[in-house]
Nucleic acid binder design. Sequence first.
RNA 1: GCGGGGGUGGCCGAGUGGUCAAAGGCGACAGGCUCAGAACCUGUUGGCUUAGUGCCUUCGUGGGUUCAAAUCCCACCCCCCGCACCA
Length: 934
Amino acid sequence: MINLKNIEEKWQRIWEENKVFETNASNKPKFFVTFPYPYVNGLLHLGHLTTSSRVEFIARFKRLLGYNVLFAQGFHATGSPIIAAAYRLREGEEKIKKELIELMHVNEKEIEKFKDPTYWIEYFVPKAKEAFKKLGYSIDWRREFFTTSLNNHYSKFIEWQYFKLREKGFIKRGKHPVIWDPKVKKVIGDHDRPDDFVGIDYIEGYIIKFKFYYKDKEIILPCFTLRPETIYGVTNIWINPNYEYIIAKVNEEFWLLPNSIVIEEIKNQEKNVEVLEKVDIENVILNFAENPLTKEKVPILPANFVDIEIGTGIVMSVPAHAPYDYIGLIDLTKSENKKYKEVAEKCLKNMKSLFKLEGFSDFPAKDIVEKMKISSQNEKEKLEKATEEIYSKEFYNAFTKEIFGEFSNRKIYEIKNEFAEKLISLTIAEKHYTLPIRFESRYKNKVIVKILSDQWFLDYSNEEWKKLALECLSQMKIIPEIARRNFENSIKILREWAFTHKESLGTPLPWDKEWIIESLSDSTIYMAYYTIAHLIKNIDAEKLNEEVFDFIFLGRGNSKEISKKYGIDEKILEEMRKEFVYWYPMDLRISGKDLIPNHLSFMIFHHAAIFPKEYWPKGVGINGFLLINGEKMSKSKGNFIPILDAIEKYSADILRFLSAYAGNSGLEDLNIELNLAEKIEGYLKEWYNFCIENYNKGREEKEIIDFWFENVIKKIVKEVENEYENLNFKNIIQKAWFELENKFNKYLYSVNIPNREVLNYYIEVRNIILYPIIPHITSEILEKIGKDPLNISWPKVEKIDEGILKSEEYIEFVISDIREILKIKGTNYKEIKIIVANREKLEIAKKIKEEIDSGKNLNELIKKYSDNDVAKRIIKKPKILNYLVEEEFEILSQYKEFLEKVFKCKITIEKEEESNEIKAKDSLPAKPSIVIIF
RNA sequence: GCGGGGGUGGCCGAGUGGUCAAAGGCGACAGGCUCAGAACCUGUUGGCUUAGUGCCUUCGUGGGUUCAAAUCCCACCCCCCGCACCA
């Protein structure tokens, strides 16, 4: 019994020893494929397998077609996840330790080392490489590299890239809100927060400045709101009586604020905040504040629902349109405090309707509170739901009333921004960012929204740049084409991108080294680096400056001068230029769909900015996410499977087969069915045995059925070739594995002993067309049958005999007909008589087919042939028109033996005009009369 | 909300106007092979009906276009993904 793993090791050794995949610039046509370098914060898993294997399949396929193929692979370490994980480990977090030990198989003794972020790179890069090697990927490993400043050569390349972008004017500096830990002074991305708070983003709102007097001093009541347009409907202000409020000097004004995290947040949004004194809340409540727009005086009232950690901890009350505000007032009317009661009743009386909303009264908040039977402000869940419903209905459907003046009779979503801008220009409102829910970072501090004022941006909103990017996209092949719209949309909506961080791994921005270029931004044109990665190592990184890269990538200057000026070997310079010019542009990059709106779009932008058109990327292939046995992959579900584990368990060819079979290119999810592994192992071994046992056997003479099968193979080769080009690997397995095998079985069934030539053709061709997917076992087979697996090429198919395929379809059709009849008749028959329709009927059928093909209406045809019974019957069964053949009788005669085998009885074939059967006259073309004899 | 993808038989999944009761795989059932099992092979796998090649129902729901709709158009319902500083 053969052992797949031994075979895999053998061929991987042969490929390595013969340097089969190390490739250089030459005169041959080239094909350059890439797989986005994986981030090395762990072992590669099956998700990496499915996408990377597609690159591998296409690399091998293109080699069979005669291309000089470059498949190179680097690894990505830029960014913060590794830093964050190392930090968490240092903090003694068990989860991260457990993951390293249990999922990543790190030896417990080694855990200490992972407290140093650079050790992750040291450890996981070789592991990733090992996985790819054991899968048998055809990678030119001389060109391997990893990112960050730990690789000076790469860093120099990134520096060059950013100098180019700055030169073009695509880099800007400006303000940007971020989620921030004020204690550790760090941007808090998803990796820096507890899982429960992943994905929470800042919200953009407004502070509206009401005024009131406290101890004869003018104090601002900064009301935070998401709905500045409701300012006309304010009946009162809410503060939370259960907490401490203070007065602070905010820039030149005095603000009332809760003594909470919001002070820190305001401080971090470009304001000076100085806390002056505590406030006696009793002296604030029931005071009157002035609406800055309408100048109305409204009372300040207490409410428990006000969250003192969100926004400014003070809100304005619009009971007509905000359920919280309405119920807050209702609650107060039930208060024992007579004063509260009185004021609240007055406020309710003053409720002002601002919008017209179909299906609601003037006071939608009241409507919904009553409808949902909300009885107090403590029913938070219901109130959130009510608020959301009213808010979204009003936002999209309601019209503003007359009070809005120039903004009246419009929908809120149309005027909201403009209206807010107006308030800001009147200096009665300010933009303010806060969080929908206050939470702590991994460093155990409450986080806030901070405005960074010196952030560096890639200006993707630059129209000129966008135009270039769209032009680049338009000359690219997108597989499948359906994904092009995602690209167009993504390029269109990309705006300024803050491309630098602090405290992460990566390359420092060359002109402002405090900042590190973040990970999506240092991985946009690195495919160009593959072309020279093996050569550039020979140059001292210190010598790599703009001029050197200008020469390599843009052909500027000349090598002699640069060589002299910087002491760089001229030959290496020339060779790098040659490699780049030969391999670029990149022909195909394959990726999951998740990278369309970010990485792949960035790649397009940056190529379009830096390189001349002839070096713009040529193509992108897209596939969906990976499901494992129909379920999403996740560490917690326990179906996070490292590639190395899977190879150990199943072997490389089985994994590759499963990966191909997981799905076609597209936006839909792939599904890898691991429970098929055993079955596939059986398939592969069976196939191996079959080939070895049967190659060169068989009979010499060639009959019709042999020609038929030969043509079936040819047709499938053509189809499979096309599927490869479209990255539809599931279809390839379907056709090259299952369909071809089914046809072979059919062939075998009808011939007993196959023709030697055809059998050999089948064995050779099937191995070669599956070689890109399962190269180890097919190489082994090819070698065993005397071929040189290092020197194979795609089978050339000159001509397919369509006629013979058509006859087969016809026979299949007749067989299925007979089966139908036998189903009814039972199995005790002795003979089957097939009576073929006469020539005259065939001529009619052909004519009708022509007419239908040319677009004639069936109704018209029925009218036209109303006096012709045969024609009418044919028209009623347009199906048979697809099986028309010229020589029905002859074809049936040729297949007579086959039919006898199929039905295990005597078969007689007659012509209608020579038959005595009554049924003979019922025969139609492609639908002979069948007589069962018992 | 915006943008994108999708809803097909027990399951997975092809399929963009007539070759579609719908490929293929998986599963199930029956038969062959076998001491037996696995694998493999053959057949069946929506319902009804029949000395005949037919009828009915079915590709998310409801309408429409057409001689003809899983496929085209309209409306609706449901599911998945993205909406950024994060790889």
